[in-house]
Amino acid sequence: MRRIISLLLEHEPGALARVAGLFTARGYNIESLTVASTDDPSLARMTIVTNGSDAVIEQITKQLNKLIDVVKLRDLTEGGHLGRELMLVKVSAQTADQKDDIKRLVDIFRGRIIDVTESTYTLEMTGSTEKVNAFLDALAHVELVEVVRSGILGIGRGKHALKI
């Protein structure tokens, strides 16, 4: 099953390598991994999307918790949660028809055109993985120059927070 695991870890050099190394060493899957600092500069927040049987997920959370740099961990999938992904897509937009078509699709999906050149549009799309995928599907007839996805950022719903 697909899981979204959220971690707070010490903002130390090498902390990311410890997490990534754990996944390769023990043969766990990583679908996506994002990491950045938080409002507390001593902490980094990481969202890992992984998949595996319940037993594998249990081991993943235990092994992550065992890393000395991991301060706190939550499997967001266990409760209500929100997941959002950012995608940047550069598409070929040469003719007026193509430009209209892309503009219409971006409007429908509530995305934005963030850069325009003579021959390309760069689009920004935020949303659940499903929505981002659906947008890419809708662009099937358009020539994609480049696709960049952030992987999922996750947060739990309601009062519960992953904080120290």
Binding site: Q59, K62, Q63, N65, K66
Partner: peptide, 8 residues
Amino acid sequence: IDPSSIGK
């Protein structure tokens, strides 16, 4: 003492 040893 190691939770990851349990049920591994």
